[in-house]
């Protein structure tokens, strides 16, 4: 079984701030990490490989420094990494990213399963997975919380819904996105770290991708554009209710009742 895991390098904290004058993000001194949800995707791929054999390849798109997240994946036990990097890709939105990665997958060709984390914690869009499934015409199972059974040609998995879960069966190849509940990711092993140090991932630019349509990518090719960014302004007028528990509870109850939200 050849498994492709799509990973992304993101800033290490979501507690990011905007420069109030320029409206751009302050990146100075902010460390970059592997998107936390991608660790579950990598772990699941490694578990499937343990069961069925085969190869796990991670693919990331980003600047040259995104190599670091490939090294982390190699440290966890992944076989190979591919870095997709090109100036022409800068400023790509979810469609442009999905298109590019789909062309990468077409070039790889021989795969049975694509795994992504449920979303990247920077943009929080969760769109690239389903958009890729469309580009590659693959069946998709989103929000997978458990793989019940997998063979070389089929998968049965639980999809987390808002009110419980659905069990789906699909032929392979397919694309799945996984949620945190699916596993506990392993740490990088010492052996893995040694390997990662030496590992030089394949680096592909747009010229390496057959039939690549440059009009689809980058800032120009992206259908969407960020018009403005701003820091949310929230006004909280917090009131602490004092007194012993019975009095405090009674006083809170009266305030809640007055808001007419609760019918009791």
């Amino acid at each position: 079984m050849n498994i492709i895991v799509l990973i992304k390098q993101v800033v290490a904290t979501t507690n990011v701030k905007l420069n109030p004058e320029t409206g751009t993000m302050i990146r100075d001194g902010v460390e970059s990490i592997l998107n936390p949800f991608d660790e579950y995707a990598i772990e699941e791929a490694l578990r499937i490989k343990d069961k069925l054999g085969g190869k796990v390849t991670v693919v990331t798109m980003g600047p040259a420094q995104a190599k670091e997240v490939i090294r982390k994946a190699i440290g966890m036990g992944v076989d190979e990494g591919i870095l997709v990097t090109d100036r022409a890709l800068a400023g790509s939105d979810t469609w442009a990213t999905a298109y590019t990665l789909s062309q990468v997958l077409k070039k790889i060709g021989d795969y049975q399963l694509i795994i992504t984390g449920k979303q990247a914690v920077d943009g929080d869009t969760a769109q690239v997975g389903p958009e890729m499934a469309a580009c590659l015409d693959l069946p998709m199972i989103a929000w997978v919380r458990k793989i019940e059974e997998i063979t070389e040609s089929t998968i049965r998995a639980q999809r987390l819904m808002d009110d419980g879960y659905d069990v789906l069966e699909s032929p392979l190849p397919a694309l799945i996105s996984v949620v945190k509940e699916i596993n506990v990711p392993r740490l990088e092993s010492l052996k893995g770290k040694m390997r990662a140090k030496k590992h030089e991932p394949a680096t592909w630019g747009v010229a390496d991708l057959p039939d690549f349509d440059l009009i689809q990518v980058g800032l120009k090719g992206s259908p969407t554009r960020v018009m403005k960014t701003f820091t949310p302004q929230r006004q909280y007028n917090s009131e602490i209710i004092g007194g012993e528990p019975p009095q405090a509870a009674a006083s809170l109850y009266q305030k809640i009742k007055a808001m007419n939200i609760v019918n009791k």
């Binding site: 469609w95 869009t125 769109q127 389903p130």
Partner: peptide, 17 residues
């Protein structure tokens, strides 16, 4: 969030989550 991005990609258009 699972299937509507798939529609956006089918239509080759932009989508905001």
């Amino acid at each position: 969030r699972s299937f509507i991005p798939r529609v956006a990609a089918n239509l080759r258009t932009g989508m905001t989550a």
